[in-house]
């Protein structure tokens, strides 16, 4: 099995400054099949330095699979993933289940794959507002505390790219907004890029640079405003809802049926 994951060469032309446009990770025409079923089809995308990119799409659209391909956890059936050499990634998987039979403290979770000093751990936990949990068992944490701990863990690696798969899962309504705010602050402070999957379209639209709407293939991508008004996006999420998200809404003169064909003209 050959891996499709390659790293860009650090050739002579690569001496340009770390501008806002330096690509950190990109997918080129990535497709993925599993047991005969197409999950991703011909997806291309790039996350550049400093960008916040949000992947949206209905259930089963292949959002998590896309992240896993980008992270190199699975190899694409065709196409390729390119990442900046030695890219430091902080990753928060979708639903982390840790079996209670394995006794782990918050402190221990932080050092599972790396070696960090107690000062570094404490500082990272303070950054995400959960330093008081340092000595506790991970099984006593609430959903929000757990995610903040995992975020602190990702920060320890001093990431250039944060990959977040539905970061507010299991977090209550108030906590959600706070967590998104924290992510935005972290992004500023660490000047890292963020690639996340989110269902929370209101947040997505207000705090992201670029939205990629996928349903196996890329339906549309661009600035939130543009995506909101895109017919494909409206087909997936409902026209009225999409327009309520958009700041500058404008009317389309037609609708699409389920396969995207023009169905009827508006009066």
């Amino acid at each position: 099995m050959t891996t499709m994951r390659t790293e860009t060469s650090t050739g002579a032309e690569e001496v340009r400054p770390k501008s806002a446009l330096e690509p950190l990770i990109s997918a080129e025409n990535v497709s993925y099949h599993a047991s005969g079923r197409q999950i991703l089809q011909d997806i291309s995308l790039t996350v550049a330095r400093g960008e916040t990119v949000t992947v949206v799409g209905p259930n089963g659209a292949g959002k998590t699979t896309l992240l896993r391909v980008l992270l190199g956890l699975i190899s694409p059936t065709s196409g390729r993933v390119t990442s900046k050499p030695h890219l430091r990634i902080g990753y928060l998987p979708q639903k982390i289940h840790i079996d209670p039979v394995l006794p782990l403290s918050v402190n221990r979770i932080m050092t599972l794959t790396g070696s960090f000093t107690q000062e570094q751990i404490q500082a990272a936990l303070e950054e995400t507002g959960v330093s008081h949990l340092n000595g506790q068992s991970v099984f006593n944490l609430s959903g929000g505390e757990f995610q903040r701990m995992m975020l602190a863990r990702a920060l320890l690696r001093n990431p250039e790219l944060l990959v977040l798969d539905e970061p507010v899962q299991g977090v209550d309504y108030l906590g959600e907004a706070e967590l998104y705010e924290l992510i935005a602050n972290i992004r500023k402070k660490y000047s890292c890029s963020v690639l996340m999957i989110s269902h929370d379209l209101h947040v997505v639209m207000s705090s992201t640079d670029r939205v990629i709407c996928i349903d196996q293939h890329v339906c549309c991508q661009g600035k939130p405003q543009y995506v909101c008004n895109h017919t494909e996006f409206q087909r997936l999420f409902g026209r009225q809802f999409s327009e309520s998200l958009s700041v500058y809404s404008h009317d389309h003169d037609h609708r699409h049926d389920i396969s995207g064909n023009i169905q009827e003209k508006n009066q």
Binding site: L71, I89, Y91, P93, I96, I98, L112, T113, G114
Partner: peptide
Amino acid sequence: WKPLLAITANEELARAEGI
């Protein structure tokens, strides 16, 4: 011990972090 513990706690995360 350490890497095995990491993949035991959460394999996906450990693999993403290079184990």
